[in-house]
Design a protein around this nucleic acid. Structure first.
Length: 464
RNA sequence: GGCGACGUACCCAAGUGGUUAAGGGGGAGGUCUGCAAAACCUCUAUUCAGCGGUUCGAAUCCGCUCGUCGCCUCCA
């Protein structure tokens, strides 16, 4: 099995060949913790999560680093507005981010470095750029990367540096740079801003430098995969490449993977447009975390994904369908020979699932394979074709695939005693054909979030 | 203006040269069932934005037109 990934730098997909055999090193641009992340942000984090999950599923060792930007203009502004420290602001939203990530079943990255804890690494990197003549100081103590010293600049985004010259869209120069296209790697000290005393002078880091310094600190000067949203291609990732490669002389990243935007109302979800939804907002409307996760990962990562009440409702129904199957398999009992055709069915599903994900994480056909299996298993349950052991095999198989997807219900062998008592009472009532008691208990259980369904093997339950 | 992506059923979304155009959701019938739920079955695109071209053959390749979105600026 060979995994193909689409690299933004070349514009084409090619086989993933880790620099170190069997070990894939990945850096993902994480959140700037100045406010709660919205679900559009989480689309890109869950895309990276899917990548990591699939590579691990495929047997590869993965080291996944995701940074936390905890010092930047917006955090400073937010702290000033509230009259608290940037540490307090960033702690609040870092914890919120971690909580939302847990809610959505996001794999915890192996390392989550914070910018404020890696100032020395950034200073060292900037020092090298100064020595090599790729960066220069301005009067206020800021340090800029000199675009003109890096001929490859613009290649990642296919932008012509000449065409960017002094357009209306190029930001006004407020730090006195030589060329308006140059970007800050270090910002000189200002009275109302946090500042670090360092070998290159006092000040604070520019945004781009942290990702170069922290990725290289944990993954080395050259690593396999760097992920982020398409909006980071330029200038953020282009700047990372320039400053990293200028400093090391080595190829920074082998594969650049970028996730398209989540769309709401026909436009990209973004704070500035105001069309945002946060994890808490969506959950507050009664959508389950797994349905939200499915809604965010269900389309190919490089395609814009429509998000809204319709997509959430569709995802909720799909998750319910999966839950119903898990419940049916758990309750199924049939003392008969094993279904001789089951192994081929499962093997075929696995092959289709893996072939799809091998193809640049093409999740749609992978999900189609899963749901075709769902229908086929339901058929066999209805036909009493499976043995009790087969039902267990099917469950284990689905859980195996779900290591990648993360949308299956949490395995729950036992219920708490009170709920179990209600179920037992209802089973007893049914045994005596006491339908009114049976119906009443079903309503009581529904009120506790337990859906009960009756089958020829007795009642079965699942979480609402 | 420059660069790039895209336009497939009621909605979301696969398919990128060749059997009946995946899958999910929704809708309409039906089966099963004490009721309910779930499930299963049938139907819901002779057609892939439009026009023209290449080809024995195109949703898939080429050209043009229309439309949408993104990046070029903080942004996942």
């Amino acid at each position: 099995m060979t995994i193909q990934l689409h690299d933004t730098m070349t514009g084409a997909a090619r086989e993933l060949v880790p620099l170190e055999p069997g070990h894939v090193r990945i850096y993902s641009c994480g959140p700037t913790v100045y406010g709660p992340a919205h679900v559009g942000n989480f689309r890109s984090f869950l895309f990276a999560d899917l990548l990591v999950r699939y590579l691990r599923y495929a047997g590869l060792r993965v080291t996944w680093v995701m940074n936390i930007t905890d010092v930047d203009d917006k955090i400073i502004k937010g702290a000033g507005a509230e009259g608290v420290s940037i540490a307090e602001i960033s702690k609040r939203y870092r914890e919120g981010f971690l909580q939302d990530g847990r809610t959505l079943g996001m794999t915890v990255p192996d390392v989550m470095p914070r910018a404020t804890e890696h100032i020395p690494q950034m200073v060292e990197l900037i020092g090298r750029l100064l020595e090599r003549g790729n960066a220069y100081r301005t009067d206020d103590g800021s340090i800029f990367f000199r675009i003109a010293s890096w001929p490859e600049y613009g290649r990642l985004a296919r932008l012509d540096p000449e065409g960017m010259r002094v357009g209306e869209r190029v930001e006004a120069d407020d730090y006195g740079k030589d060329d308006v296209r140059d970007f800050a790697v270090w910002k000189g000290p200002r009275a109302d801003e946090p500042s670090w005393e360092t070998a290159i002078g006092p000040g604070r880091p520019g945004w781009h430098i942290e990702c170069s310094a922290m990725s290289m600190a944990y993954l080395g000067p050259s690593f396999d995969i760097h992920t982020g949203g398409v909006d980071l291609i330029f200038p953020h990732h282009q700047d990372e490449i320039a400053q990293s490669e200028a400093a090391t002389g080595q190829t920074f990243v082998a594969y650049w993977l970028h996730c398209a935007h989540l769309q709401m109302g026909g436009q990209k979800m973004s704070k500035s447009l105001g069309n945002i939804d946060r994890v808490g907002d969506v959950l507050g409307r009664g959508i389950s975390p797994r349905a939200l996760r499915l809604a965010l990962v269900s389309a190919h990562y490089r395609a814009p994904l429509s998000f809204g009440e319709d997509s959430l409702a569709a995802a909720s129904s799909a998750v319910d369908r999966l839950d119903a199957l898990f419940a049916a398999l758990a309750a199924y009992r049939n003392d008969c020979p094993d279904d001789a055709t089951l192994p081929a069915l499962l093997d075929g599903t696995r092959a289709a699932f893996e072939a799809a994900l091998d193809d640049d994480l093409n999740i749609s056909p992978a999900l189609a394979a899963v749901f075709e299996l769902v229908r086929e298993l339901n058929r066999r349950i209805d036909a009493r074709q499976l043995s009790t052991a087969d039902a267990g095999r099917a469950t284990d198989f689905l859980r195996g695939l779900d290591r990648v997807l993360g949308i299956a219900p949490v395995a729950e062998e036992t219920l708490d005693a009170e709920l179990q008592k209600l179920l037992d009472d209802r089973a007893a009532a049914r045994a005596g054909s006491d339908w009114s008691a049976s119906d009443r208990l079903r309503t009581v259980l529904a009120g506790r979030g337990i859906l009960v369904e009756d089958t020829r093997d007795g009642q079965r339950w699942r979480r609402a």
